[in-house]
């Protein structure tokens, strides 16, 4: 068994230990189901209520991916625009930082005001949360492309779009894919926030309704679903990243994103 396998096994053991301790502490101290249900109860609830949970989970994934898709489109084009020249980068960067530092929860009421409650504000929230890391990373990647690499193309008489296509964009791919795995988790957060505040579908909404009827195990079952979805999305985009940008030789395990 090599070093990385041992580490993987250790972190798996650590996760199991966490749930076992949780279970034991609840049993030993007789913690009420209304405060903190045991993992076994939560899983039982999840299996029990699966038919009810499933449509909500699908709705959440759908909203996240739709918002994320728009986020990629807008993020890529804005990032390419801003990263196209040093001037554009320097001029636009402060405004970008300003926008990205607004807590995105604050914009949900505005979206509800404009589009009403439902799927649209959730998609928009997911989009706006995922767009900034992509813009910043793509712009940074383009703006920091080594002039020497561009000179290689210029001496060959390459047109601007050829330089972009053959040098700048491939050079930016590691930045872009690194931003995707961050962005997809952010899109997910955005979706759940919007669902919690103003929607009648989705896991966020499910948890909201469950908590108002003190169905605490269902609240936690929703939380488990969210955790599983979030991790899956992160893993999928990490995998894509490592396949597409393997040339950077980066060794990068599954680290927990903190949002």
């Amino acid at each position: 068994m090599n070093e990385s396998q041992r580490r993987r096994l250790m972190s798996l053991g650590f996760i199991l230990l966490f749930f076992v301790l949780w279970e034991l502490i609840c049993l030993v101290f007789g913690v009420s189901q209304l405060v903190l249900p045991r993992p076994s109860v939560i899983i039982a609830t999840f299996i029990d209520r699966f038919p009810a949970i499933m449509p909500h989970a699908i709705q959440t994934i759908y909203t996240t991916l739709l918002g994320f898709g728009f986020g990629i489109l807008i993020g890529l084009s804005l990032g390419m625009l801003i990263g196209s020249s040093r001037l554009a980068f320097d001029v636009a960067y402060p405004l970008l930082v300003g926008f990205s530092s607004i807590p995105k929860v604050a914009v949900v009421p505005i979206f509800v005001l404009w589009f009403g409650a439902g799927t649209v504000p959730a998609v928009l929230t997911a989009m706006i949360m995922s767009v900034f890391p992509i813009v910043v990373n793509v712009a940074t990647g383009l703006a920091t492309t080594e002039p020497e690499l561009e000179d290689v193309m210029k001496t060959l008489g390459a047109k601007k779009h050829e330089i972009l296509w053959n040098v700048s964009l491939p050079r930016t791919m590691p930045f872009f894919f690194a931003s995707l795995k961050v962005s997809v988790t952010l899109a997910f957060v955005g979706t759940v926030i919007a669902e919690t505040v103003a929607s009648n579908r989705g896991i966020g909404n499910l948890m909201m309704i469950a908590s108002s009827s003190f169905d605490v195990p269902l609240v936690f079952a929703g939380l488990f679903v969210l955790a599983a979805l979030g991790v899956s999305l992160y893993v999928i985009f990490s995998f894509i990243e490592s396949r597409v940008t393997g040339w950077t030789k980066r060794q990068d395990g599954l680290s927990v994103a903190s949002h």
């Binding site: 080594e146 020497e148 690499l149 000179d151 290689v152 053959n166 040098v167 491939p170 050079r171 791919m173 940008t245 040339w247 950077t248």
Partner: peptide, 8 residues
């Protein structure tokens, strides 16, 4: 002076 090969 540097090989400036494209790393990808």
């Amino acid at each position: 002076q540097n090989p400036t090969l494209l790393p990808w």
